[in-house]
């Protein structure tokens, strides 16, 4: 138990003193995961709406497939992206392996099914009367989509927050494709993994607490940005 207490006091100390290495690692974690969440949202919110509103054969199967990938192990994605971007792999010429860019890409792959699936679920939760009324009042397909998205905004925002949570907390992709290079690709989760391996449990714990702090602040901000 004393370890947990020491971890907590150490975390507070590191935050108050703005420890340069910890600030740098935390900033990088935030940057990479915010970028991946933002980019994925820009793709998946419209795409999820499209799947929800369009009727097409095999729609149920598509949704089932998306939901299946909710639980895909991060190490599996990490390995897949590693093979893709390794020198010997098909995209090796891009020279992206062991860079933050490829970590963003891996996280995007990770949270795409989540954002798609939960966007569809969020839109399904909106009362059917609303799109019907909009249409009867002469709304175009695009306007109707905006209305329904607005109605579902809390669920959609929760989806984005969940995506961010999964992105910033994962370690498998960051470790395999990022390589945990100090000062370049080291993020909070890979630092925790390394410090635990080195036996510095207090620092690991402190970093874990900082990760939760960051998630808290980002959630508060995102909730504030929510219209009404």
């Amino acid at each position: 138990m004393t370890e947990i207490w020491h971890g907590l006091t150490k975390a507070i100390g590191l935050i108050i003193s703005l420890d340069p290495e910890v600030t740098e690692i935390a900033g990088r974690s935030l940057m990479i995961s915010l970028t991946s969440t933002l980019l994925t949202s820009l793709i998946c919110l419209p795409l999820g709406s499209l799947i929800h509103f369009k009727q097409f054969p095999g729609k149920r199967l598509v949704i089932s497939l998306i939901q299946t990938f909710f639980g895909i192990p991060t190490v599996a994605i990490g390995l897949f992206v590693f093979i893709l971007f390794s020198r010997a792999g098909p995209l090796g010429g891009l020279n992206l392996l062991f860079t933050p860019a490829v970590m963003v890409l891996g996280q995007m792959i990770l949270i795409t099914p989540l954002l798609l699936g939960l966007t569809i679920a969020a839109l399904s939760g909106v009362d059917k009367v609303i799109p019907d009324t909009a249409r009867s009042l002469g709304a175009s397909g695009f306007q109707m989509t905006i209305i329904v998205l607005r109605e579902a905004r809390f669920a959609v925002m929760a989806t984005v927050i969940m995506g961010f949570g999964r992105a910033i907390s994962e370690v498998g992709i960051a470790l395999i494709v990022g390589g945990n290079i100090r000062g370049f690709t080291r993020v909070i989760t890979t630092a925790i993994s390394l410090e635990t391996a080195k036996g510095d449990l207090e620092l690991s714990l402190a970093l874990g607490i900082i990760l939760i702090f960051i998630a808290l602040i980002v959630n508060i901000l995102l909730n504030r940005l929510q219209p009404r």
Binding site: L18, P20, E24, G27, L30, M31, L34
Partner: peptide
């Protein structure tokens, strides 16, 4: 995000 990028760059 750009602020973070700037600060993380400086604090390195």
């Amino acid at each position: 995000m750009s602020l973070l990028l700037a600060t993380s760059g400086c604090s390195s």
